[in-house]
Nucleic acid binder design. Structure first.
Lengths: 342, 342
DNA sequence: CAGGGAAATGTAATCGCTTGCATTTTGCAA
DNA sequence: TTGCAAAATGCAAGCGATTACATTTCCCTG
């Protein structure tokens, strides 16, 4: 009847149930190695005491946590949400738990989060994109924590990845746009430094221009930060050029939606006056008005496959294998041929 | 030169640096209780070995983790994103780490996640809404883990909360709508079972009707699952009534955006033919076309204040205090008076 | 009813770190 | 120099689980 009892431990349960701690532990981890009667006693004690195992202690003793960490740049917009959701669901099905951390697109925070998750005992890690200090990969190796890169696929990279080829996807989309007759192009993109995906998309776009006989140097590029507002601002800037582009590519749908809004505000109609092209195909893209022409990314599939790959390597010990998934243009309503030129 | 060295421990660092483990530990946790020289030696050893402290061990020994868990219904849409982001940022500023888990709106998963986070040593928990089994609160109490409810504010509830009054907010919005002359109302909402916020909004709406002398029973209510698609479907259903409503309330912006899209598809213009009202004021609301009239929720402020409250109780031991924040209607373009009636 | 192998349970070492207390160093004033 | 308080460091006892390995109990079979 003392008011402040400390949280019960395995030991307390053992005492209460009149068995040894080993039995209680087994009862929890391998129920069928324990007799029915004992199990009942133990379970009763557990409920009575409101016992819950201490994760840290258990992790330390068992040297595994059935936990996988995921580190994403941001949770602000839904870019990674669908993928992560799928990732988590698949993990759950195999008895694993996902831990998420976000970095606000900052390398230093990312490193901090990686260390934090590893310290927390994450058995493996899911990372977005390849770009990061080599020393981080060394660290992970030292710690014996497998890391899988996603949202990108680069067969040349050291790190295994489950994702799609950003370069190829953007090039394909750009090729279609150029085929429509657009010659004056612009790109609004997230900062490319430390962001291999953004960079690959940019380079892919230039490649398409080159392939079509255009001078890639003519591409007007604006780098900005994520966010609808920023997309809007960048669009305004882009369109203020003496010879404004007829098609504006955006590194992602969030920026594209901002551009779209700005276009409306500037009295430009899309796609008649100017085409706007996104990337990612998040929910926003379908809701935008007009519905956004964008590059579809297999979010759920990616999350699912990544989870499977990680679990597999954890259980089999076989190194991770890269997997390429397709990302393809989806044409909705924001793309049309350029206005008849002067 | 052996290829598979185990991950280094505090002990290894101590040996390498030629000091005791106590010193290394202090060096990490209270740098200023250690001499400059020693600190350098230790740091060198740490870097050399690629050491990273084992969180579980540390948590066990110290009995605290500087970790706060947040459990949200979903990460799929951005509803909780802004709030969480703010929550995390504030936490970070005080040296705390946030762990997120999502439940897919399922009570059993939520319980599982709560236990999991507690077992992981979360020093405190952030929960969405009040509705959950009383036994969970008992459990948290037993474990000595303070839990703060957010996204809702209910002075009558047992649990402390930092949030806004869903009932009052919806009533206020509804009052404005009714004042415009709308008499035939409908509500598309998330499932109300186990969701006190949805329920409060519904009741708030009815209260406004009653206050205006309308029969609350006349409100057409459709419960559905989150998602743009579902919002669209529900809207179609609502409008198929023999006497379709002139204003359709939505329990949240995601549903509202779906409704908006469906309206467009049905050739109805908003707000001329029908008004659509959302709730939450997530980014989506401003991007939608036309921009959504909705109830603004102080996401960032809420996350920020919740973090402060939790840290405060953790450090001072003073029980959590509830805080009410305002949530107010923001009128954009999807609300107008009803069409001249027959 | 004895004997034996399987099943159930117990014993105790161990995981990596923190921290109260004891001990050694250091820095300075006398 | 010497003496001393303060600063720095070391010692060692936990923290709460897991799990070899040892021991006891059970259930059959002959």
């Amino acid at each position: 009847m003392n008011s402040k009892r400390p949280t019960p431990t395995l030991n307390d349960v053992a005492t209460e149930a009149g068995v040894s701690t080993a039995t209680v532990s087994r009862c929890l981890n391998f129920p069928d190695r324990v007799s029915q009667r004992t199990r009942d006693k133990v379970m009763t004690a557990i409920n009575l005491l409101g016992y819950s195992p201490n994760f840290g202690a258990s992790a330390m003793a068992a040297r595994r946590t059935k936990t996988i960490g995921a580190i994403i740049p941001t949770m602000e917009n839904a870019i990674f949400a669908r993928g992560l959701q799928a990732f988590q669901e698949t993990l759950r099905g195999y008895g694993y738990t996902m831990l998420v951390a976000s970095t606000a697109y900052r390398a230093d925070i990312e490193e901090e989060q990686i260390r934090s998750l590893v310290a927390r005992g994450a058995d493996a890690l899911l990372l977005i994109g390849h770009d990061r200090d080599a020393q981080i990969y060394t660290f992970l190796e030292t710690q014996g924590v497998p890391a899988l890169v996603t949202w990108a696929f680069d067969p040349h990279a050291e790190q295994p990845s489950v994702g799609f080829d950003n370069h190829a996807a953007m090039r394909e989309m750009a090729a279609s746009v150029i085929a429509l007759g657009h010659e004056n192009l612009a790109l609004i993109t997230a900062r490319c430094a430390g962001n291999d995906r953004a960079r690959a998309r940019l380079v892919g776009l230039r490649a398409a221009m080159e392939a079509a006989g255009q001078d890639p140097e003519l591409l007007q590029v604006i780098q900005t930060t994520y966010g609808i507002e920023n997309g809007a601002a960048a669009f305004a800037e882009v369109m203020s050029a003496k010879k404004p582009p007829t098609a504006v590519f955006c590194g992602n749908d969030v920026l594209a939606v901002g551009a779209l809004r700005q276009a409306r505000e500037m009295g430009l109609s899309v796609p008649e006056d100017v085409s706007i092209i996104g990337f990612d195909d998040i929910e926003l893209a379908q809701v935008a008005y007009p519905p956004l022409t964008t590059v579809h990314v297999p979010h759920a599939e990616m999350g699912h496959r990544a989870a499977l790959a990680l679990i597999d390597t954890l259980q089999s010990g076989i190194p991770l294998q890269s997997i390429a998934l397709p990302a393809t243009p989806v044409f909705r309503k924001t793309l049309a041929g350029p206005k008849a030129v002067k």
